[in-house]
């Protein structure tokens, strides 16, 4: 269940390199300041890859999701406590951890298997931003804490609230 209603912001207002769908795969981001706009489950796929080559990465995480480091044959009831433990072990900073914790009442997705996202967020040059993005401008994005974030490249996740209908496809949960 998502509370995100229609948005008037359009990625077309951004003049830099805009990557949608799977266009970020296998690409080098050397020297680029990159913004990734995606919910947690998808940022977990994109960010570890982008952070390897980019000069800096700002992760605009639209909604957190549960992640577990390994595939464990756990019953559904234990999947979420396992994800919580995984988060506790991987992210020592309480404020970052708080921003990576999904709202259990509204986010009912099963934890996704991913062992790289939390580590990628701790790389130097990688910043987790959870302020809502409300507009695209020629040089980057503006978020609701009042700041314009200028970047050379925007990677738009397919589940992002800003993904156009044609590029949107469901990412397996």
């Amino acid at each position: 269940m998502s509370a995100v209603t229609s948005t008037t912001a359009s990625a077309a207002d951004y003049d830099g390199l805009l990557l949608q769908g799977g266009q970020w795969r296998g690409r080098s981001f050397t020297g680029l300041r990159v913004a990734v706009l995606a919910p947690g489950r998808e940022a977990a796929l994109i960010v570890p890859d982008v952070v390897r080559t980019a000069r800096s990465v700002k992760v605009f995480q639209e909604e957190p999701d549960w992640l577990v480091a390994w595939h464990l044959p756990l019953p559904r009831l234990l999947a979420r406590p396992a994800a919580r433990l995984s988060l506790r072990w991987s992210v020592p900073d309480p404020w970052t951890r708080r921003r990576l914790t999904p709202d259990g009442r509204f986010n009912t997705r099963r934890p996704r298997v991913d062992g790289r996202y939390y580590a990628a967020l701790r790389q130097p040059g990688c910043t987790l931003i959870t302020w809502p993005v409300y507009a695209f401008v020629p040089d980057g994005v503006r978020s609701a804490e009042g700041i314009e974030h200028r970047v050379d490249c925007i990677v738009l996740g397919t589940s992002s609230v800003f993904a156009t209908a044609s590029s949107r496809e469901d990412v397996p949960a």
């Binding site: 209603t5 948005t7 503006r142 009042g146 700041i147």
Partner: peptide, 12 residues
């Protein structure tokens, strides 16, 4: 919520 989104402003 829609009004809030529409009324956003920036320090920029």
């Amino acid at each position: 919520l829609q009004t809030i989104k529409d009324k956003q402003w920036s320090l920029a």
